[in-house]
């Protein structure tokens, strides 16, 4: 029997990053429920942002392979291992994408705060 996957809440790096971003954007004291909803939604957007960055890095064949794997119900491990082989500089690209996402988020937040006179 394969050892099972364990899911915990504390160590999601993207989520932790987004939580820090929301706080840095000045919403640390927003109502807890709304803040957590926002963090969840923004985490998905951050993942998409990283995805776009990676789509530029992967050749079309590999991209098609990844989609086939996902469509065929590949396990989480298989999807993750895919990048170890196909994208050697994935770590740098992920960090770059998150950095850009963070800047966009902060800029947008600043603009919104101005518009809403917060």
């Amino acid at each position: 029997m394969h050892p099972p996957l364990v899911s915990v809440f504390a160590h999601d790096p993207i989520r932790a990053y987004v939580e820090a971003l929301v706080a840095k954007a000045g919403f640390a004291h927003a109502p807890a429920e709304e803040r957590l909803e926002t963090v969840t939604a923004l985490t998905a957007e951050a993942q998409r942002r990283v995805g776009f960055e990676l789509m530029h890095a992967i050749d079309p064949h590999s991209l098609a392979t990844f989609r086939e794997m996902a469509a065929d119900g590949a396990t989480e491990d298989e999807l993750i291992v895919f990048f170890d082989v196909r994208v050697p500089d994935a770590q740098e690209r992920v960090r770059t994408a998150l950095d850009r996402f963070g800047r966009e988020c902060l800029e947008r937040a600043a603009r919104l705060r101005d518009e809403l006179h917060l």
């Binding site: 899911s7 915990v8 993942q47």
Partner: peptide, 29 residues
């Protein structure tokens, strides 16, 4: 794609989609 790449690059995380409205669900594996 982004979730899997992040988990691979940072050594932590999962590919499960965050579900709005179900805050507190595990999001990393």
């Amino acid at each position: 794609l982004g979730a899997a790449a992040t988990a691979a690059a940072l050594g932590r995380g999962g590919v499960t989609a965050p579900v709005p409205g179900r805050v507190g669900q595990p999001t990393i594996a």
